[in-house]
Amino acid sequence: MDDNAPPPTVWPAFQAHDPLCVIDTLVALGFEETARYTDEQGVIQHAQLSWPEGGGVMLGTHKPDGPFTQRPGTTSAYIVTSDVEGVLARAKAAGLQVPDEPHERDYGSREFGVRDPEGNQWSFGTYPGEPRRNAAP
Rank of each mutant, 00 (worst) to 15 (best):
G95R: 04
I23P: 03
V84D: 06
H46N: 10
F31E: 08
D24A: 14
Q41L: 13
P67H: 01
S82D: 12
I23Q: 08
A35Q: 10
K63C: 08
F68R: 13
S76D: 00
Y78F: 14
A89H: 04
I23D: 04
L59W: 02
K63I: 00
K63Q: 14
V84M: 11
V98S: 08
A47I: 01
A94R: 05
T25D: 05
L96W: 01
A93I: 01
D39K: 09
A89P: 04
I23L: 13
C21W: 00
Q45P: 02
V57L: 14
E40L: 14
V98G: 04
H62K: 05
Y78R: 14
L88F: 01
E85M: 11
D24M: 08
A28Q: 09
P64M: 08
H62C: 14
L59A: 10
C21I: 03
T74C: 14
L29Q: 09
G55T: 02
D24F: 03
G56N: 08
T38P: 07
I44H: 04
E40G: 13
S50E: 10
A35E: 10
E32D: 11
G95Q: 02
Y78W: 12
Q41G: 13
A47N: 03
A94D: 04
C21R: 15
L29G: 10
Q48D: 09
H46M: 11
Q70F: 00
V84P: 06
A89R: 13
G30Q: 11
T25H: 09
A94I: 02
Y78G: 11
Q97Y: 01
T69E: 12
L88Y: 00
F31W: 07
A89I: 00
L96N: 04
L29C: 09
R90I: 02
V87Q: 11
G86S: 07
L26E: 04
D83T: 00
H46L: 13
G42H: 09
P99D: 07
G73Y: 05
E53L: 15
G95C: 05
Q41W: 00
T38H: 10
E85A: 15
L26R: 08
P64E: 06
V22Y: 03
T74R: 14
P64S: 07
C21T: 09
G86K: 07
T81R: 10
F31T: 04
G66W: 05
Y37R: 15
E32A: 15
T38I: 12
T38G: 13
V87G: 12
S82V: 00
